[in-house]
Computed example of a mutant assay.
Amino acid sequence: MITTQQWQHIRKVVNDTQKAAMHCSIATVDANLQPTVTPIGTLFLRENPSGFFFDTYTESLQQNVPHNSKACIQAVNSSRLFWLKSLFKGEFSDFPGVQLYVEIGDLHLANTEELAQISRRIQSLKWTKGRHLIWSDFSYVRDFSVHSFRWVKYPKMMPFS
């Protein structure tokens, strides 16, 4: 069971990750149990242990989910400043990442709130040509529920573990 405090911390770490890397990774397996990792730049966490992502460029994930809806979402903070500060001090100020063990739901049309969230996320890139090429056709999402999690740790640099 994920506590409210843990979930708020997870949301902070995932938010920091997405600011730095602009994506998370989702690992799934196909019908032959071969793993595939899919980068997702449109992942959003809700107030409870769940979330959604826009399923637009995810061919492997779309093929894998019908066979096995369990997945692992990994978010690792790749901010150079975060890592340089941590290496300089010899300890992390927070967990460098988190793995979320999830169950992915069926594909469905995005609602107004979900469309507003993606619009806010890409707002700062509205002037770029790439934004229109990559992020102009978002209409379908997949919900997921989080069943458990595991912090990404480097034991010798974790002052609070």
Rank of each mutant, 00 (worst) to 15 (best):
L115M: 08
R150P: 15
T58E: 04
H108E: 00
R11D: 07
V13N: 10
S50Q: 12
A31V: 12
P49M: 01
I26H: 00
K126G: 12
S93W: 01
Q99V: 02
F138Y: 15
P159L: 05
G51D: 03
G41R: 10
L125V: 12
D137G: 11
S79A: 14
W127F: 15
G105H: 00
F95D: 02
K156R: 06
G41E: 11
V13S: 04
A71S: 09
T112S: 01
I10E: 13
M158C: 13
R131W: 09
L133V: 13
S25C: 14
D30A: 10
K12E: 04
K89C: 08
K70S: 06
A21I: 14
Q74K: 09
M1F: 14
Y154V: 13
T128E: 09
H108V: 00
E114W: 04
A27I: 01
K89L: 09
S148C: 08
E47V: 10
E47F: 04
W127K: 15
R131M: 06
Q6F: 11
E59F: 07
F82V: 02
S145L: 10
M157S: 15
S139A: 13
S50G: 08
L133R: 14
Q63A: 05
T42M: 05
S145I: 05
I26N: 02
W7L: 12
F44M: 10
V141K: 01
N64L: 06
A75F: 06
C72W: 00
S69N: 05
L33F: 08
V76M: 05
F54P: 07
N111R: 08
V29F: 10
A27D: 01
S86D: 05
L87N: 06
W7R: 10
D55A: 02
V29E: 12
F53W: 02
S79P: 09
L61W: 05
